[in-house]
Nucleic acid binder design. Sequence first.
DNA 1: CCCTTTAGTTGTCATTTGATAACAAAAACA
DNA 2: TGTTTTTGTTATCAAATGACAACTAAAGGG
Lengths: 144, 144
Amino acid sequence: MDNNHLFQKFIAFTAAVHQITNDISKDVNSDGLTPLQYKIVEYIAVSQPVTLSEISDCMNMSMPNTSRELKKLSAKGLCTRITDPADRRKQGITLSAAGEALMSEAFGQIAVRFEQRIAALSAEERKETERALDLLQQKVFYLS
Amino acid sequence: MDNNHLFQKFIAFTAAVHQITNDISKDVNSDGLTPLQYKIVEYIAVSQPVTLSEISDCMNMSMPNTSRELKKLSAKGLCTRITDPADRRKQGITLSAAGEALMSEAFGQIAVRFEQRIAALSAEERKETERALDLLQQKVFYLS
DNA sequence: CCCTTTAGTTGTCATTTGATAACAAAAACA
DNA sequence: TGTTTTTGTTATCAAATGACAACTAAAGGG
């Protein structure tokens, strides 16, 4: 019972996560990437290799628009497309060296702010935090 | 040591949260609200009453643009502005009855999908989940 | 009282993003 | 083989969003 209670917490929690991550990754994208383009690069970084359709699905954008944005990212030299030899309609998209460099630069900045945020936590608290992250990712925020 | 390990988990976790919440609240906004407008209404719902400056800060948008969007929301009858008698430059912004109705409709839909997602969890697991949400919100995703 | 700061408004323009139609090529299938 | 489905592309138009300048009004501070 009282699932509603849990739901309230879920809402408050996700709102907080969005707010904090927005704040923490604000201004990280110094380069000439639009917000959408940055999100795509981030997605590729985490899930590579991906296909255009996967990006389209996961990011909720139409194939034409996905294709357009990816073309721009390729033009900027941030990602590489390799035609799948098994199915030549598909392209495996990965980050190029420049793309990886960009993301590790970005992650570096984010890491610093993350460290500041958890600076006060004891070793024990960090372990608890890690367990909590694992648990939630497994039970609630699993990718279906 | 191994804070880097924790950071990796943080990145993976926030990516998952974004993906899942995007997915779960996709198509929820049936009305004539743009994505940005929906986010603003959601923010007001959670934090009301708020001022224009607060929205501007938290959502990372300029005052002129915030003002413009809020004017549209007011025109749609979704929110109310009350001039603060103590400082007549400020406005306390809250949701109108229509705004509340819209949000509770939206939250209702989200709740259904959330329930589906956690349907398999036992009572014990739900308690653990709740504790994990509390812990993370307190230690990591606190609003500074 | 003047000066500065804070809070918000209005208008305008450029860029980004979303939506749709029409297309091509490879694969799957009957 | 011919047809359909999947995967992606190109082009075009409309709408949403971002950026900036110029402005008003209230508050605060000397």
